[in-house]
Write a protein that binds this DNA or RNA. Structure first.
Lengths: 139, 139
DNA sequence: CAGAATTATTCGAGACTCGAAGCAAAGGTA
DNA sequence: TACCTTTGCTTCGAGTCTCGAATAATTCTG
């Protein structure tokens, strides 16, 4: 592989994400979501087990104090609630409220419409996922 | 295309970028580069015409006051210098200093080594670039 | 049980981002 | 020329974001 191509590819991944965020700016403003709260909200899948602070911080590539701050913002806006993990009482899990689930669905729907990746057809998207999964998943 | 796949793909692009940045954290710290200054430094290609503030702000998805702030950080560290564009004296272009070129080369080299995308072989990387270019380039 | 490790939070400092206002240069009109 | 508008950038002020260090509560280990 040539180094310039790799540089281009890295920049392109950054660009896809940033363009997606740019495009949904109005929707985020509508719900008073900042970039940080938006990302955190996105990262809490209501169909999975509620993540602990630690797990979510890892997903967001930020540290613990930072996530505490962001979680407070989400909680203040009534989008998430903290709950003690019964299995480990040191740990707090973040649970989406009904409003949180609704807002999350709305911003993700907007992102799916507006992202540059929406230009890909089914086969291309599958191809892209194969490549990215190969790179991101362990093994 | 199925919506969950598109969500996964968007998150994956974000993840590739963030993991790349995470991995080169030590190198950035070594040069006292913050995320913002690192990105700006990356975005100034010494082999191209020095970009104006406006052009660079577009590339970085930020606004003018923000880039003024970041440019000052880079200038304070002796990595870039401002120059008046003779063709339009309102415009300032950012020129890498010798140190700026050296530091830029170093952090990009580190990124190329550490990025998850380095796991792709030549053909896969070409495939990825084809897909991302199709999505990002106009037309 | 005592000590070490883990999970979150608080605090303080600094970095980042943006809108509004201001300034100088460029472009348009007469 | 004079005047007005637009453009590119900077300054200022406010708010957001991020992190390291210190703290508290809980769990783990020997």
């Amino acid at each position: 592989m040539s180094a310039p191509d790799l540089v281009t590819a890295i920049v392109a991944t950054y660009d896809v994400w940033m363009r997606t965020v740019d495009e949904i700016g109005p929707v985020l403003a509508e719900h008073r979501l900042t970039p940080a709260t938006f990302q955190a909200l996105w990262a809490i899948d209501p169909d999975e087990q509620p993540p602990s602070m630690k797990a979510l911080a890892g997903r967001l590539h930020c540290n613990a104090p930072n996530l505490t701050f962001v979680s407070n913002q989400l909680a203040d806006r009534g989008l998430v609630e903290r709950a003690v993990d019964p299995a480990d009482r040191r740990s707090r899990v973040l649970v989406l409220t009904a409003k949180g689930r609704q807002v999350r669905a709305e911003v993700i729907r907007a992102a799916l419409e507006k992202t540059p990746l929406a230009a890909l057809d089914d086969g291309e998207l599958r191809q892209l996922l194969t490549l990215l999964n190969r790179v991101l998943l362990p093994g």
